Amino acid sequence: DRYEFNINGVHFTIDDAEEELIKLIEELLKRGARAEEIEEVIRRWER
C-alpha cells in the first residue's frame, strides 16, 4: 500500500509501506518528530 503524510509542509510518500513502519511513523508524528528524524527511520527500515 502507498502511505502518504506531511511534516511541516514536506510531503512524503512510501510505496509498499509495511504496517509496522506506518505505525512507527505515526507514533513519531504524535511525538512531534522532525522530518529529518523520520527520514532517518525510513532509511534504516529500508536497509
Rank of each mutant, 00 (worst) to 15 (best):
E40L: 09
F12W: 07
I22T: 03
E19H: 10
N8W: 04
G32Q: 10
E37K: 05
R44L: 14
H11I: 15
R44T: 12
I25T: 01
R31Q: 09
E18T: 12
V10C: 12
I42R: 02
N8K: 03
D16P: 13
E40N: 06
E4V: 04
N8V: 03
D16A: 14
A35Q: 11
I38E: 00
D16V: 12
E26F: 12
D16E: 12
E27V: 15
D16R: 14
F5K: 01
E46Y: 15
E40W: 08
F5I: 08
A33P: 06
E37R: 04
A35S: 08
E20W: 10
E27C: 15
I14L: 10
V41F: 13
Y3P: 02
K30L: 14
L21N: 00
E39Y: 12
E36A: 11
I14W: 03
F12Q: 01
A17V: 06
I22G: 02
W45R: 01
I25F: 02
L24I: 13
D1M: 14
D16K: 14
R31C: 09
I22E: 01
I38M: 07
L24C: 11
A35R: 08
R31E: 07
L24M: 13
L28W: 05
E40S: 09
E19M: 09
I14K: 01
A17C: 04
E27Y: 15
A35P: 11
R34S: 14
A35M: 12
L21Y: 02
L29S: 04
R44D: 09
L21K: 02
I14M: 04
I22N: 01
V10D: 05
E20V: 06
L24D: 07
G32N: 10
R43H: 15
R44G: 11
F12R: 00
I42A: 02
K23W: 12
I42W: 04
E27H: 13
K23M: 12
G9D: 07
L29Q: 04
I14V: 08
A17L: 04
I7P: 00
W45C: 01
E26H: 12
K23S: 11
I7V: 15
I38R: 00
I7K: 01
F5M: 04
I42M: 06
K23N: 12
E20T: 09
E46I: 10
V41W: 08
I38F: 08
T13W: 12
D1E: 13
E20Q: 07
E36Q: 10
G32F: 09
K30P: 02
V41K: 04
E39W: 13
E37I: 06
L21I: 07
L28I: 06
R47M: 14
Y3A: 01
E26L: 13
A17I: 06
I42T: 02
A17M: 04
T13S: 14
R47D: 06
F12E: 00
I22L: 05
N6H: 12
A33S: 10
E18N: 08
E46G: 10
F5A: 02
N8F: 04
A35V: 15
E20C: 06
E37N: 04
H11K: 12
R34G: 15
E37G: 02
F12L: 04
E18V: 07
G9V: 02
W45H: 03
N8T: 04
R43C: 08
K23L: 13
R34W: 09
V10Y: 06
E39C: 07
E39M: 14
I25D: 00
I7R: 02
L28K: 07
E18C: 06
I42G: 00
V10F: 08
L21C: 03
R47V: 12
L24A: 13
R47E: 06
V10W: 07
I38K: 00
N6L: 10
E26V: 13
E26R: 12
D1L: 15
E37S: 05
G9T: 03
L24W: 06
L24K: 11
I25H: 00
A33W: 06
E20F: 06
G9M: 03
D1H: 14
I25G: 00
N6P: 01
I25E: 00
R44V: 11
E36D: 11
V10G: 02
F5H: 01
E4L: 02
I42L: 10
R43W: 09
E27F: 15
G9C: 02
R43E: 05
A33Q: 04
E46V: 10
E27R: 14
D15G: 04
D16L: 11
R31G: 09
R47Q: 13
E46P: 06
N6R: 04
E20D: 10
I38S: 00
G32E: 08
R34Y: 11
E18Y: 04
V41L: 14
W45G: 01
E39P: 01
E18F: 03
E36I: 07
K23A: 13
D15P: 12
E19T: 11
N6A: 09
N6M: 14
I7G: 01
Y3F: 11
L28T: 05
L29P: 00
G9H: 03
F12D: 00
N6Y: 12
F5W: 04
I7A: 08
T13N: 05
I14N: 01
K30I: 11
R44F: 14
E4K: 03
A33D: 03
D1Q: 14
F12M: 05
A35N: 06
E40F: 10
I42H: 01
L29N: 03
N8R: 03
A35G: 06
F12C: 03
I42E: 00
R44N: 13
V41D: 01
D15E: 14
V41H: 06
E4F: 03
D1C: 15
R44I: 11
A17F: 05
E39V: 13
A17Y: 04
I25A: 00
V41P: 00
T13V: 14
I22F: 04
Y3N: 02
I38Y: 04
R34K: 13
H11V: 15
D15F: 15
V41M: 10
F5E: 01
R47W: 11
I38C: 03
R31W: 12
N8H: 08
G32L: 04
N8D: 14
E26A: 11
Y3H: 04
L28Q: 07
E36R: 08
I38V: 13
A17K: 08
N8A: 08
I42C: 03
R44S: 15
L28S: 07
I25S: 00
R43S: 08
E19V: 11
L28A: 14
V41C: 10
E46D: 11
L24N: 09
L28C: 05
N8G: 13
E4C: 09
A35D: 03
I14F: 04
I7S: 05
A35H: 09
I14Y: 02
R2I: 09
D16I: 12
L29H: 03
I7F: 04
G9Y: 02
R2G: 07
Y3T: 03
D15T: 09
